[in-house]
Amino acid sequence: MEIIIAKDAEQAASLVADRFEEVLRERGTEGAVLGLATGSSPVATYRELIARHRGSGLSFAAARAFLLDEYIGLPADHEQSYHRFIRENFTAHVDIPDQLVLSPDGEAPDPRAEAVRYDASIAEAGGVDIQILGIGANGHIGFNEPSSSFASRTRVKTLTEQTVKDNSRFFSSPEEVPIHVLTQGLETIREARQIVLIATGEGKAQAVHSMVEGPVSAECPASILQMHPRVTIVVDEDAARHLTHTDYYRFIQAQKGRLSR
């Protein structure tokens, strides 16, 4: 794991956008496969990428994208569907072809069959080149709640009461939050060639500590990222508050480039 402690949420978003821009420019006309998360954590990064598209011509025209998850029972045009969220907050503002922004079908008549189909579609696209993640207060990534299998593929998942409560701020009441979702599993996520996770705010500090410095455990699903060969964790000062080795993480960043001198 590479741990980067940014001075604030704005810098954190810019650093994550840097990684996406690197992959987009490296892949060029071959086209990058992007893994996109929803929720509040990545929104500032999406705004930064939109600004770079408009200001410096960063192009997404050759890319395709896969979303992490979707609520079961919500139509694609529902104001809280992730299909709609990603378009309103990101993809409708850049030049990625809309038909290549893919997500699980929350209205599929057979959600389990839809999960298998969606998982296969990621593999058919050649896999994800770079995946952006947020982290829940209980350590979930995607909708992989505590106790999720590290070998899990895209599947139907039941949300915890805490996640329902956390997400109720986007709905009129907690009763309106769907309890069941389609989500990429931990093994599916871990197959991405590069992963960048962004976490900001003190509310994520304990989850960040458990993910980075705690044991690899199903109690903190995000801890499986310790086993990935290319993961970058970008946090602001508040989210880094409970980390033990902050001086070492900062020292590592300060020494970058010295090996090549």
Rank of each mutant, 00 (worst) to 15 (best):
I4L: 11
I122V: 15
R241C: 11
M211V: 04
G201K: 02
I3W: 05
D95F: 05
V196C: 09
A9L: 00
E22P: 00
A62R: 10
A9Y: 05
A6E: 12
M211G: 11
E213I: 12
S149H: 03
E145G: 03
S59T: 15
T246L: 08
I224K: 00
D105E: 10
A240F: 07
R19G: 09
D166K: 03
R261F: 11
T188W: 01
V231F: 06
L34C: 04
A254V: 05
L34W: 13
I189D: 03
H180N: 11
D129Q: 11
E213S: 12
E237L: 07
I179A: 10
G142T: 09
G126Q: 02
N144A: 10
A92F: 02
I179S: 07
A61R: 15
T45C: 14
A218Q: 08
A13W: 09
S148Q: 08
V177A: 02
R64C: 13
S223A: 03
E22T: 14
I96N: 04
I86G: 12
E175I: 11
R87P: 00
H245Y: 14
P221V: 07
S103M: 11
R250C: 10
F143D: 05
L186Q: 03
V208T: 14
F170C: 00
S59L: 11
I141Y: 02
D69Q: 12
A115F: 04
G142F: 03
D8T: 00
S41D: 05
F60D: 09
L58P: 04
A6G: 01
R54I: 01
S14D: 05
G28A: 13
T163K: 02
I252D: 14
D238P: 08
F20H: 05
A17P: 04
T91V: 11
S147A: 12
S14L: 09
S121H: 01
E219K: 08
A218E: 12
F85C: 05
A13T: 00
D119G: 14
T29Y: 08
F170Q: 10
R190A: 15
Y248E: 15
R52A: 09
A63H: 06
E219L: 12
I141P: 03
R190H: 13
P221F: 02
S56W: 00
L259A: 10
A192Q: 06
V43S: 07
D247Y: 06
S103A: 15
E219D: 11
H140P: 08
R54F: 03
R169S: 14
T45Q: 02
A6R: 12
E175G: 14
D247G: 14
Q226W: 00
L15Q: 00
S168T: 14
I189L: 15
D95Y: 04
T246R: 15
I198E: 05
P97E: 11
L34R: 07
Q162Y: 10
I195P: 04
R193M: 04
D166Q: 09
T91E: 01
G35A: 08
